[in-house]
């Protein structure tokens, strides 16, 4: 690599680079938002994990199911809680709390030693690139509409875990929703 291209290389974006500052900079200076004539709100499904409120775009949610008996898969990755049978379809059910640093270890919810599931717990069936996947949530809050102006970049402190699961924050009234990238949250 020539000296010149080395210099040039510094200017290229790298996916692993922290560019939050740049985003903030751009958001403040550019005025792109100002020209957007009309804001189209997007619908999100909000749910509870431990005491935090999270949300995912609702088009990525296929359905919400009560927690059926889960069958544990021996020797599977720890975040795979087990499989569920949803009207004859076999679906994997995942824990994302550990990845989000909300818990030390996945809850014991499958197998003969598991206690009955908490009353408000649900399984969100999400559409992912590798097929449908269930995600354990502690409760479903509801559908919220968020306009682009309500969205903001996650604070640097939110950057948790080994994957960038949190894509932003949504603020509506007093409530703050942590927006998740489900694909990332479920990535192996």
């Amino acid at each position: 690599m020539s000296r010149f291209s080395e210099l040039l290389d510094d200017f290229f974006y790298r996916p692993d680079e922290d560019v939050t500052g740049l985003h903030d900079f751009a958001a403040g200076s550019d005025g792109v938002r100002a020209i957007a004539p009309e804001e189209v709100p997007e619908e999100y499904l909000a749910f509870r994990l431990e005491s935090e409120c999270y949300a995912v775009p609702i088009r990525g949610v296929r359905e919400i199911s009560k927690v059926p008996p889960l069958t544990e898969i021996p020797r599977a990755e720890p975040q795979l809680l087990g499989v569920m049978n949803l009207r004859g379809e076999l679906l994997p059910v995942y824990d994302i709390k550990v990845r989000l640093r909300l818990a030390e270890r996945p809850p014991l919810v499958a197998g003969p030693d598991a206690p009955p599931p908490p009353r408000h717990a649900r399984i969100l069936v999400l559409r992912t690139q590798t097929g449908p996947a269930g995600v354990w949530v502690d409760g479903v809050v509801g559908v919220v509409k968020l306009k682009p102006s309500m969205l903001e970049a996650p604070p640097p402190g939110m950057r948790t875990g080994d994957k960038d699961c949190v894509v932003g924050m949504g603020r509506r009234g007093p409530t703050l929703y942590i927006l998740l990238d489900a694909e990332q949250a479920l990535a192996p």
Binding site: T71, I73, R75, L80, V83, L90, T130, G131, A133, L186
Partner: peptide, 27 residues
């Protein structure tokens, strides 16, 4: 037998799952 498709293909030692009725899934 239903194959463990999609995200579960790489599970070793399990070829699929079956429903024994009463919503019990057995590997």
């Amino acid at each position: 037998t239903k194959p463990l498709g999609g995200r579960l293909q790489s599970i070793r030692g399990i070829s699929g799952a079956t429903d024994l009725g009463n919503r019990r899934t057995v590997l």
